[in-house]
Lab assay of single mutants.
Amino acid sequence: NRKASRNAYYFFVQEKIPELRRRGLPVARVADAIPYCSSDWALLREEEKEKYAEMAREWRAAQGKDPGP
Score class of each variant (00 low, 15 high):
residue 19 E to C: 03
residue 5 S to G: 12
residue 68 G to I: 06
residue 32 D to P: 00
residue 33 A to N: 00
residue 35 P to L: 02
residue 63 Q to T: 10
residue 58 E to I: 06
residue 67 P to G: 12
residue 20 L to G: 01
residue 6 R to H: 04
residue 57 R to T: 11
residue 30 V to D: 03
residue 57 R to W: 05
residue 10 Y to H: 11
residue 7 N to D: 15
residue 17 I to D: 00
residue 54 E to Y: 06
residue 14 Q to K: 11
residue 45 R to Y: 04
residue 31 A to Y: 08
residue 43 L to K: 12
residue 40 D to V: 11
residue 16 K to V: 04
residue 69 P to M: 09
residue 18 P to R: 03
residue 22 R to Q: 10
residue 22 R to A: 12
residue 46 E to D: 06
residue 43 L to D: 15
residue 22 R to H: 11
residue 19 E to K: 02
residue 30 V to F: 07
residue 58 E to Y: 00
residue 69 P to H: 11
residue 53 A to P: 03
residue 11 F to W: 05
residue 12 F to N: 02
residue 32 D to E: 11
residue 60 R to T: 15
residue 44 L to S: 08
residue 20 L to W: 02
residue 63 Q to M: 06
residue 67 P to E: 11
residue 4 A to S: 12
residue 44 L to G: 00
residue 4 A to V: 12
residue 42 A to Q: 09
residue 10 Y to K: 04
residue 32 D to A: 04
residue 28 A to W: 00
residue 39 S to V: 08
residue 64 G to D: 15
residue 63 Q to W: 05
residue 9 Y to K: 11
residue 32 D to W: 00
residue 2 R to E: 14
residue 64 G to W: 10
residue 43 L to S: 14
residue 46 E to F: 08
residue 24 G to D: 06
residue 20 L to R: 00
residue 51 K to P: 04
residue 38 S to F: 07
residue 63 Q to G: 14
residue 65 K to I: 13
residue 32 D to K: 00
residue 5 S to I: 15
residue 8 A to H: 04
residue 32 D to S: 01
residue 67 P to K: 11
residue 12 F to I: 00
residue 8 A to I: 06
residue 7 N to V: 03
residue 2 R to Q: 14
residue 30 V to A: 06
residue 33 A to C: 03
residue 20 L to M: 05
residue 19 E to N: 00
residue 18 P to W: 01
residue 25 L to F: 07
residue 37 C to K: 02
residue 45 R to D: 08
residue 38 S to P: 00
residue 65 K to L: 08
residue 11 F to S: 03
residue 22 R to I: 01
residue 22 R to N: 09
residue 41 W to V: 02
residue 45 R to I: 04
residue 41 W to R: 03
residue 13 V to A: 08
residue 44 L to M: 05
residue 13 V to F: 03
residue 27 V to E: 01
residue 58 E to A: 10
residue 55 M to R: 01
residue 45 R to C: 13
residue 66 D to T: 15
residue 28 A to S: 05
residue 22 R to W: 03
residue 52 Y to H: 15
residue 30 V to T: 06
residue 2 R to N: 08
residue 19 E to A: 07
residue 33 A to M: 02
residue 29 R to P: 00
residue 46 E to V: 05
residue 8 A to E: 06
residue 1 N to D: 01
residue 22 R to K: 15
residue 38 S to G: 15
residue 12 F to K: 01
residue 22 R to M: 07
residue 57 R to D: 11
residue 43 L to H: 14
residue 57 R to F: 05
residue 53 A to M: 05
residue 45 R to M: 11
residue 31 A to M: 06
residue 64 G to K: 13
residue 64 G to H: 15
residue 16 K to E: 00
residue 14 Q to P: 02
residue 68 G to K: 12
residue 25 L to S: 02
residue 2 R to T: 14
residue 19 E to P: 01
residue 69 P to W: 14
residue 30 V to M: 08
residue 38 S to D: 13
residue 54 E to M: 11
residue 11 F to C: 06
residue 9 Y to P: 05
residue 66 D to R: 12
residue 5 S to K: 08
residue 18 P to C: 05
residue 67 P to L: 13
residue 46 E to C: 11
residue 44 L to H: 00
residue 2 R to K: 13
residue 63 Q to E: 11
residue 36 Y to H: 08
residue 54 E to Q: 09
residue 56 A to W: 07
residue 16 K to P: 00
residue 2 R to G: 13
residue 37 C to Y: 01
residue 8 A to W: 00
residue 39 S to E: 11
residue 19 E to W: 05
residue 10 Y to M: 05
residue 45 R to N: 14
residue 17 I to P: 01
residue 19 E to R: 02
residue 33 A to R: 01
residue 33 A to S: 03
residue 42 A to P: 05
residue 4 A to H: 00
residue 57 R to E: 13
residue 23 R to H: 04
residue 27 V to S: 10
residue 66 D to Q: 14
residue 69 P to C: 14
residue 39 S to I: 04
residue 17 I to R: 04
residue 31 A to G: 10
residue 27 V to T: 07
residue 34 I to A: 09
residue 14 Q to H: 02
residue 42 A to E: 12
residue 30 V to N: 03
residue 14 Q to F: 06
residue 5 S to E: 15
residue 38 S to T: 05
residue 6 R to K: 04
residue 56 A to E: 10
residue 63 Q to I: 12
residue 12 F to H: 01
residue 45 R to E: 12
residue 18 P to Q: 05
